[in-house]
Amino acid sequence: MSTSTVSTTINGDAVQFACPTDESLLDAIRNRVGLTGVKEGCGTGDCGACSITMDGRLVCSCLVLGVEANGRAIETVEGMADGDQLHPLQEKFIEHAALQCGICTPGFLIAARVLLERNPDPTEKEIRYALAGNLCRCTGYDKIVRAVQAAAKEMRKASKKRTRK
């Protein structure tokens, strides 16, 4: 039994794929499901470009087997926007020029989203440590951290508005 059929949920959609049991979830998502927003920078969990969430947990999809996704709920960068409404992090990354080549951007967005869900008002230091598993070689991280700060601020404002209602 070296191939397995996997039933999973990706960005809310039920997805089925068959993959060899030793294939990484990263390869399965990219090559079998066709979501190439999940990037491979190293394949060894050192760069974070392949970050996704699985049942809400931030993981490197290169360090998960495709077969392990069976019955799980997966979120990738492709599922961040709500229809034509970008996630505040996506908006702020564009506005703050927080990307240059952009290859690391999907991973940063996912990691930053998990951070802000857990901690809506992180300090600069908390942001930097939470994003330490995501390598960026273009920006020196400056504008990325500023974009996350700006998104956090906007999300706090929006959630205040919601609770007032």
Partner: peptide, 14 residues
Amino acid sequence: DGMDKVTGRARYGA
């Protein structure tokens, strides 16, 4: 190219 890059649509070498 920002929109494509924050939504995962931008296509790189691989």
